[in-house]
Design a protein around this nucleic acid. Structure first.
Length: 898
DNA sequence: GCAATGTAGGTTTTT
DNA sequence: CCTACATTGC
């Protein structure tokens, strides 16, 4: 083989890449090359095992030793170990937590930790930054290679060319650039010498092998199209002769640094001898034709000479079917119908684009009793981490967090008992009198979260997780494994707190998946399906055309650019085509593509059969695995109580507040706060109440607040001072009071609502001024919200009405004003906190009062007819509250069984 | 016909 | 989280 030292083999899907590699290896051995001089490299452990299996098969009857077969990471690890520089792999949770901490303490964004941990794509969040850091490091870019002025210049250029980021001003972006660099630095310096992330392993190996490392004579690389810049570097350093096999059309790991540029260079340059493997054994004729057509249609510019060699050596014709759904909800029925037609002995791969799709589909198939396997991602464990966090919160915390713990699944308290306990806790200070004995014991025994945390996991959380099922156990074990590193790093000093521990626990982690395919029907993402084949494939794509670049992507692109590297937006679109190509080429027989009709044109190519599918069954309600098992359990001892409880609870609620009214519009929150008694306090709330009490003291007794060392507090306060100036000097007004409570009968406020309940409001500030000959009274509500919100008008309209009734002043003489003291109209914290005061227009105010009236009516109706409330509770979707879901589920069952 | 309300979507993929 | 667009209600 090695007439020339570097060979690049282009191999179409199913053409026998691994087979070719193992053949070449055994040929070398037969030619007398020593095993020790040969190295095989793969990307995944799975591929490594497969390669080993094939080679052993080839040489099993010979005297040859199996050569080194490594993944890129295991090779790197062995190089590092060789240099006595071994280290610990840092859990990704650590990485994420570190980033969250930097984002928060440096106040880079105008959001608090909870929001920054979620993946709202419009907001620069932890997930985006993790990806960015990993991506940059795959190009060997560390903070010292980020030149801030260059970076900003590139960003400015994009903005000047009209390629800015939606929702971010140039000013924000420039500040964000600095923020990103700070976070990157924080992250790198947070690790000690022995701690490494995946990219550190490669980076260190490259550096060490540069110094000196015994080269292998021959290096074989599988899936060469997925190689990142540093992996390419490593190959060049460890091997003299290179035999690389890959397929550019299957490069789908660009997000991970998979660098098509390296492959393009190899293909176009003269360093490598180019070869192509002929034919495909896997794919039947029609599928091959379809796939060629697909690639040529969507990538007309791409030179892919190996496509001319993409010929089926499979005697079957095969068939491609495009199933066009009228409605997205029909998908499960389409899948079911296809599965029902399958031969039970043959394997079916249901290939999806995202883990979320995989989870949803798997749950639906379970509901239909269709046995299958889901090769899962790691994102399904969020719920369990939340439950662990809530439980720990109550074990180590006080008051409100104990109520949270009572409702957590780990307390093992049934919902009914939980409600009773939460109720009693409001009047009873002695926990021993209300909490179950076991929880009291746990609080006492493991009461110190610094020292007994791991023991608590050992003794209680992990055993209980086992009882809760596999995914609960996986989640708990995963959290447990990553705790020592947290305690070691952050467990000392002032920054250690229950809150920081909970933040750490709530972060996602990525783990190696070890799933082997064992079922005939298998749900799998495209990326995991790479390298696999099935008798039949059902592909459910999720293709989205529109691509607005995100803030963090622009920064990453600009950093690459200033390092003379590039990963263009075009490349992102091309990768999407390749992802489809990989999915389409996994089948040995038939290929079914299921897509919504409106987005089907992309796949409407010859040769394919087209079917328009509409389901006969209408009901496609989402129910999760957990629901099913719980339901079964609950049916065993079922005693209806929720309806009565809700009724009683509603009967007791006889005094409305504005917050309560707001919650009526979001019943999940209403149930949480007023039925279950769970009060959540956010940092925004603390901030708001601090400011409000400063203002109260100032208005009532001219007290000035204590020295503030918080930027946001200081600026907000200074905004209040300018408002005060405006009131006294411009309006010539006089403060009359602050924090004044008013209470009225609802039937006084809204005469056509027949009820005995009352409504209450608290006015933040009140002043009067003279206009012409009339005295005007202004009621003021101070807001520390980031944004102007038109709902506030409703609140003020109600308060104005309450005030006019209480003081028998005509509504005409009352004006209301919203004073925003802490407006931040940007996503990035540009260190500016704006102010504005809105005098409310009387006509708008009247309309707003009508709005309030509707909500009050709704509330009164709920009190009168608990069944109408139940109906609405049952129709709530998309809630984030686990307890509410539990409540809803129980209620539903109760209603169905009564 | 317009306002109020609901909901999708903003990629996402993983050694 | 925030916006844009679709659907529903009066």
């Amino acid at each position: 083989m090695m007439s020339k030292s570097r060979i690049l083999v282009s191999a179409n899907p199913g053409s026998g890449k691994t087979e070719d590699l193992s053949n070449q290896v055994s040929k070398l051995l037969q030619d007398g090359v020593d095993s020790d001089n040969i190295l095989c490299l793969t990307f995944t452990n799975k591929a490594r095992d497969e390669m080993e299996r094939r080679i052993i098969l080839k040489i099993k009857d010979t005297k040859y030793k199996v050569p080194d077969i490594h993944t890129f990471h295991s090779l790197s690890q062995s190089i590092i170990n060789h240099r006595m520089e071994g280290g610990d792999l840092i859990p990704e949770r650590f990485l994420r937590y570190q980033i969250l901490k930097s984002l928060e303490t440096r106040q880079i964004m105008n959001y608090d930790g909870e929001v920054l941990s979620k993946d709202y794509p419009a907001i620069v969040n932890v997930g985006q930054i993790v990806n960015a850091i990993k991506f940059l490091k795959s190009f060997a870019i560390l903070p010292d290679k980020v030149h801030i002025e260059e970076l900003k210049k590139n960003v400015r250029m994009e903005y000047n060319n009209g390629n800015g980021v939606n929702g971010y001003t140039l000013e924000e972006m420039e500040i964000l650039c600095e923020g990103f660099l700070d976070i990157f630095r924080d992250y790198e310096s947070s690790k000690n010498l022995s701690q490494m992330d995946y990219n550190d392993i490669l980076l260190r190996a490259v550096n060490y092998s540069k110094a000196h490392f015994n080269k292998y004579q021959y290096v074989f690389v599988d899936e060469v199209q997925d190689m990142s810049e540093i992996e390419y570097e490593l190959v060049k350093q460890v091997g003299e002769n290179v035999y690389a096999v890959g397929d550019m059309k299957q490069a789908i790991f660009g997000f991970q640094g998979g660098n098509i540029r390296a492959l393009r260079d190899m293909m176009s340059g003269k360093d490598f001898e180019k070869r192509v493997i002929d034919g495909t054994r896997r794919l039947p004729k029609n599928v091959v034709e379809y796939c060629i057509n697909f690639y040529r249609t969507h990538e007309p510019e791409e030179l892919s000479p190996e496509l001319d060699h993409f010929r089926s050596m499979n005697e079957k014709d095969g068939v491609v079917t495009l199933i066009r759904l009228k409605d997205k909800g029909d998908m499960i029925d389409a899948v079911t119908e296809i599965l029902n037609k399958q031969n039970n002995d043959e394997s079916v791969g249901i290939i999806v684009r995202t883990n979320e799709q995989a989870n949803d589909l798997s749950d639906s198939l379970t509901l239909k009793n269709i046995s299958h396997q889901k090769i899962s991602g790691t994102k399904g464990e969020k719920l369990w981490r939340e439950e662990i966090s809530k439980f720990i919160g109550g074990i180590y915390g006080t008051s409100d967090s104990i109520i949270g713990m009572i409702y957590s699944i780990y307390s093992r308290i049934p919902l009914y008992d939980g409600i009773q306990i939460a109720e009693r806790m409001r009047f009873e200070n002695d926990l021993k009198k209300v909490l179950p004995r076991e929880l009291i014991d746990i609080r006492e025994k493991y009461g110190n979260h610094k020292n007994q945390l791991l023991q608590l996991f050992n003794d209680y959380i992990i055993p209980n997780s086992i009882a809760l099922g596999e995914s609960a156990f996986e989640a708990a074990k995963d959290v447990f494994d990553s705790l020592p590193m947290f305690l070691d790093r952050f467990g000392t000093g002032e920054e250690y707190s229950l809150a920081s521990l909970q933040k750490y626990i709530l972060q996602e982690n990525s783990r190696d998946s070890v799933d082997e395919i064992s079922e005939k029907v298998c749900i799998i993402t495209v990326h995991k399906a790479k390298g696999l084949e099935f008798d039949h494939v059902i592909y459910i794509p999720k293709y989205t055309e529109k691509k607005n670049i995100s803030a963090i992507d622009l920064i990453v692109d600009s950093i690459l650019k200033s390092n003379n590297l590039s990963y263009s937006r075009d490349e992102r679109i091309k990768e999407e085509n390749r992802i489809d190509f990989v999915a389409l080429t996994r089948t040995k027989n038939s290929l079914d593509i299921i897509t919504e009709k409106k987005s089907s044109t992309r796949y409407d190519l010859e040769p394919c059969k087209k079917i328009d599918f509409t389901t006969k069954i209408v009901n496609n309600e989402f129910v999760s695995m957990k629901d099913i098992s719980d339901r079964e359990k609950l049916k065993l001892n079922f005693k209806p109580w929720i309806r009565d409880y809700l009724k009683k609870k509603m009967e007791k609620l006889n005094n409305l507040s504005f917050t309560m009214l707001e919650r009526v519009k979001e019943l999940d929150k209403f149930v949480e706060s007023y039925v279950l008694g769970i009060q959540t306090k956010s940092s925004a709330l603390t901030f708001g109440s601090d400011i409000h009490s400063y203002i109260e003291n100032y208005i009532k007794s001219h007290e000035t607040p204590p020295i503030m060392n918080d930027e946001k507090l200081t600026r907000t306060w200074s905004n209040f001072i300018s408002y005060d100036k405006y009131v006294r000097e411009i309006q010539k007004g006089k403060w009359l009071g602050s924090e004044m409570k008013f209470k009225q009968k609802v039937s006084n406020v809204f005469p056509d609502i027949m009820t005995n309940i009352t409504v209450e409001g608290r006015i933040d500030g009140l002043y009067k001024y003279i206009e012409g000959n009339t005295e005007k009274t202004v009621i003021v509500d101070f807001k520390t919200s980031k944004k102007v919100n038109r709902d506030y008008v409703n609140q003020l309209s109600l308060y104005a009405k309450l005030f006019s009734l209480e003081n028998k002043i005509d509504m005409e003489q009352i004006e209301s004003e919203i004073a925003y003291l802490s407006l931040r109209d940007t996503k990035v914290n540009i260190n500016r906190i704006e102010k504005r005061w809105d005098r409310i227009d009387p006509t708008i105010e009247m309309r707003a009062l009508e709005d309030v009236k509707k909500t009050v009516e709704k509330f009164v109706n709920y009190k009168l007819s608990v069944d109408s409330m139940i109906r609405d509770i049952l129709s709530v979707r998309n809630t984030e509250s686990n307890v509410f879901i539990e409540f809803q589920k129980m209620l539903k069952m109760e209603m169905e069984n009564s």
